[in-house]
Amino acid sequence: MTTSATGMPFDDILSLIDQMAGPDEDARATVRARDAVLTKPAGSLGRLEDLAEWVAVWQRQAPPKVLRPLVAVFAGNHGVANQGVSAYPASVTQQMVENFAAGGAAVNQLCITNDLGLKVFDLALDFPTGDITREDAMDEMSCARTIAFGMEAIAGGTDLLCIGEMGIANTTIAAAIYAALFGGDAADWCGRGTGVDDEGLKRKVDAVEKALAFHDGNLDKPLEVLRRLGGREIAAMVGAILAARLQNIPVIVDGFVASSAAAVLYALDKAALDHCIFAHVSAESAHSRALDAMGVKALFDFGMRLGEGSGAALAAGIVKAAVQIHEGMATFEQASVDGPAEN
């Protein structure tokens, strides 16, 4: 589906969530039937078998296919960066976007390795969102328009979407979102992000505490949490995840910050992430806490904390392998291999 570039009020976004379809059980059954006769012991490929089934269920087709995988990286700047919560200046966001365009970032190399498309979206980097310690990050229309932009960002077509982000200070933003959605103290959700020292970490915790206090009484609705505490890149990822569901596209979510966008949708509807998998457990200390709160398990834990869709791009290679195994393996009959002995 295509949405208007002028944006949508929050009521219309909620209406789209109500339109989300559930899993395709016919596709699941077809995948399981084929898996049962492939030349391997039952269940011997473990989670790879689950991944092939997951792709088929949410693409609503069997066998599943990954022919046009896409990594979408959304970049935004944040007023709270002025609070000294990051080891890097806000100018690095734009510089890294240029590095993506030049092919020099880690995610570029992962996309080359796994034959993935890459699109990078600059979300008004010259105009940071409001400093959440003293004002709303966005007004409702701006937030809704950014969600709509994220929905349109995948309009070019893909059959497997990986979402990632770039934005100095956005681990502070994500920590504030998690605290508002899932409770706990600011310190429970704040880590060292880009590598802040002890004083930087204290400033980060202080900023999240101030933000939660400033917006207290107005954080009872997930979309209000997003607009008051979030960022444009996070709002755009919310839109991309939602649009993927409506367009039958499975989604791989990257790390700590990307998962905060998923958390907003989870808080709206616990089934809203059924078409998603989470790539990895970030080295950002609170990411495992967030995954637990959403009841999900990541594919791997490599101690990564880069962002920029790097974990999702790596996971996409695993998903592609799972799909290729399912489609390309011979059956016992095709290979003239004896199947399991009957007792």
Results as ranks from 00 to 15, higher is better:
31 V>L: 07
220 D>L: 09
103 G>F: 14
297 K>F: 07
106 A>E: 01
180 A>R: 04
55 V>M: 09
129 T>P: 03
257 V>G: 00
296 V>C: 09
12 D>A: 15
142 S>A: 14
109 Q>V: 09
230 G>A: 14
238 V>N: 04
65 K>Q: 14
3 T>A: 07
203 R>L: 12
283 A>H: 04
180 A>N: 09
305 R>M: 05
180 A>V: 08
68 R>N: 14
273 L>S: 04
215 H>M: 08
209 E>L: 04
189 W>I: 01
234 I>M: 15
145 R>M: 14
240 A>I: 05
153 A>W: 08
334 Q>P: 00
333 E>Q: 10
220 D>G: 11
168 I>L: 05
161 L>N: 02
81 A>E: 08
129 T>S: 15
152 E>P: 00
339 G>N: 02
338 D>P: 00
269 D>W: 11
197 D>K: 09
20 M>W: 00
103 G>W: 13
128 P>K: 09
294 M>N: 03
10 F>S: 03
214 F>S: 02
341 A>S: 10
112 I>M: 15
187 A>Y: 00
177 I>E: 08
145 R>Y: 09
4 S>Y: 03
57 V>G: 01
325 I>C: 08
225 V>N: 03
231 G>D: 08
213 A>Q: 13
170 N>E: 13
293 A>Y: 10
183 G>K: 14
285 S>M: 04
243 A>P: 01
95 Q>M: 12
34 R>E: 05
306 L>D: 01
254 D>Y: 12
88 Y>S: 00
267 A>Y: 01
309 G>Y: 11
160 L>F: 11
194 T>H: 01
63 P>H: 11
341 A>H: 11
97 V>G: 01
107 V>M: 06
270 K>T: 14
289 R>Q: 08
3 T>C: 04
19 Q>D: 11
196 V>Q: 02
292 D>F: 06
226 L>K: 09
111 C>D: 04
100 F>T: 01
117 G>E: 13
237 M>P: 00
283 A>E: 11
322 A>P: 00
322 A>H: 07
169 A>W: 07
9 P>Q: 07
123 L>P: 03
343 N>A: 13
147 I>Y: 14
247 Q>G: 04
221 K>C: 05
327 E>G: 01
40 K>Q: 06
50 D>V: 12
72 A>K: 03
139 D>M: 10
35 D>V: 07
136 D>Q: 14
297 K>C: 04
162 C>Q: 10
233 E>L: 12
57 V>H: 08
197 D>L: 11
15 S>Q: 13
284 E>C: 06
140 E>F: 12
41 P>C: 02
233 E>D: 15
305 R>K: 07
241 I>V: 15
133 T>P: 12
274 D>A: 14
131 D>E: 08
288 S>G: 07
173 I>H: 10
81 A>D: 07
336 S>Y: 13
281 V>G: 00
278 F>Q: 02
247 Q>M: 11
42 A>W: 14
313 A>T: 03
148 A>Q: 05
33 A>F: 10
336 S>W: 13
61 Q>K: 13
85 V>A: 12
330 A>Q: 12
174 A>C: 10
14 L>R: 12
207 A>W: 02
